[in-house]
Simulated scan of single mutants.
Amino acid sequence: MAEVATFATSDQLLVVIDPAARRMDGEAVRIAKDVLSAGAATKVCLPDGPDEFARALARRGSRRPVVVGDDRALVRAVSLLHRQRELAECALSVVPVGTMLGLAGSLGVPTGAVAAARAALDGVERRLDLLVDDSDGVVVGALRIPPVPAMGVPAAVGEAGPESAGRVPWLRSARSLVRTLGAARPSRLSEVVVPPGGPSRLRVEVDGVTLVDLDQPVRELSVTPCAGSAEVEVRPVSVGAEAAPLRAAGRHVTVSGADFRYRADSVVSGPVRRRTWTVWEGALGLRLPG
C-alpha cells in the first residue's frame, strides 16, 4: 500500500483512494488529490484491496477520512467504521469516482470531482440514518427484495467489490450457460448466480405488527431509512388490476419466510430465512456542501 504525505493549511485528512477508482478514472482521481492537497494537510493511501482499505481507515488517527471511489467504496467505509463503533466520532467525506454513483448522489454528495473535494474541505457535517441488521450489516441507502441487480454490477452473493471486476466476463458466461441448460440439475455454479426475481412468500413485520403474511405473495419489497424511521413499501402480487402497495414506517422491520436474498445498497446477501433491520438515527456523519 503506497502512502504519500503532503502538507498544506488547515485540516488533517486521510485520503483513501479505492483501487477501482484508480483504474476507472485516473484523471478524476488526480484532480481530487490536487484539490484536497491544496486545501489541507493530506496523507494519501493507495490500498491494493479490501484488507489494506480496512487497515488504512483503522490507522487514521486524528485524521478525517476522505474516500475516493464509487458507491461500493462508500458502503465499505461506512460498514468498517460501524463495525469499529467509530461512526459517531467520525465525519466521513466522499469524492465519487467510477460508474456506480447513484447512492452518493442520492445522499447529496456532488458527483463531480472538484465539487466533491471542495465539499470535503469546506462542507458541513450532516447526520444521516442507517439500517443495521441483526448480523451487524449496514444499509446506507435502500434494502430491496428480490435483489434486482444494479446496472454494471455482477449479481453475485456477497460484496461486489473491485476485486471482482476480473470475474465479470466469467459470470456472464455462467449465466448464459445456466439459461441454455434450462432445467439442468442444480450445480455449484447455480449457487453463485442470483436467480431472476419472482413472487416471494414473506412475512413482513414493522414494530411487531404484520404488514403482509405468508399467504399473500410479494412481488417487491423496499425498506429505506428516513427521518428516524424505516419506510417500508410492499408490492403484493395481484390478479387482474394492479394491487395497491402496502406502506408502513417504524423502527424495526423483520422479514421472514422461505429462503430469500436481499440487496442492501450494492451488496447481495443471503439466502436467509429471517432478518431484522433497525434504524440507527443519525448514525452516519457525512460531509456535504453547506
Rank of each mutant, 00 (worst) to 15 (best):
R185M: 09
V206G: 10
G166A: 09
G198R: 14
D122N: 12
G105D: 11
R263L: 12
S266P: 03
D136G: 04
M1Y: 15
L288C: 05
P289W: 04
R235L: 00
A155K: 06
D25S: 10
D48P: 03
A91I: 15
G228P: 03
L92P: 12
T276L: 07
L103F: 04
E242L: 14
L246V: 13
E242K: 13
A88I: 11
R247G: 03
R185N: 04
D134L: 14
S269Q: 00
R201H: 12
L221W: 04
R126G: 11
G285S: 05
M24K: 10
L171D: 06
R203K: 13
R63F: 02
V204H: 05
V239E: 14
V268S: 00
L221S: 10
Y262I: 10
F260C: 08
W170P: 00
L92C: 08
R188W: 11
G208R: 14
S266D: 03
Q216P: 01
V234P: 00
R144Q: 15
P147F: 14
H252N: 07
H82F: 15
L288R: 02
E242G: 14
P50F: 01
E281H: 15
T278I: 04
E220N: 11
P199L: 15
G39R: 08
L92K: 08
V109K: 08
R251G: 10
A156Y: 03
L131A: 04
P96I: 09
D48A: 15
E233T: 02
V206M: 13
P65S: 01
L288T: 06
S37M: 08
L14V: 02
G208C: 14
E52L: 07
D213H: 02
P147W: 13
V192K: 02
S222K: 11
A156V: 11
R201K: 12
G152H: 12
P225H: 12
G182N: 11
L284K: 14
Q216K: 05
F7K: 07
A243Y: 08
E205L: 13
G123M: 07
S135L: 12
L74E: 02
A120W: 06
E163A: 09
A58W: 03
R172D: 11
G61S: 12
V237F: 04
A264T: 11
R59F: 02
R23A: 10
S229G: 00
P47N: 02
R179K: 04
S164I: 14
R72V: 00
P186G: 05
P196F: 03
A73E: 00
V29M: 02
D213F: 01
C45T: 08
E159T: 11
H252C: 06
P110T: 08
D136Q: 10
G108Y: 04
R287Y: 04
D11C: 02
C90F: 01
L36H: 09
P96A: 08
F260Q: 05
Y262P: 08
R60G: 03
S200Y: 14
A184V: 04
R72Y: 00
T210L: 01
S190R: 07
L202T: 14
I145Y: 13
K33E: 06
I145L: 15
M151Y: 10
A73S: 03
A8F: 05
V192Q: 04
L101R: 09
R235Q: 00
R172Q: 07
V255I: 13
V97F: 01
A117Y: 07
T42H: 06
A241S: 15
D134M: 13
R219N: 06
A120N: 10
A258L: 14
D136R: 11
P19H: 08
M100P: 00
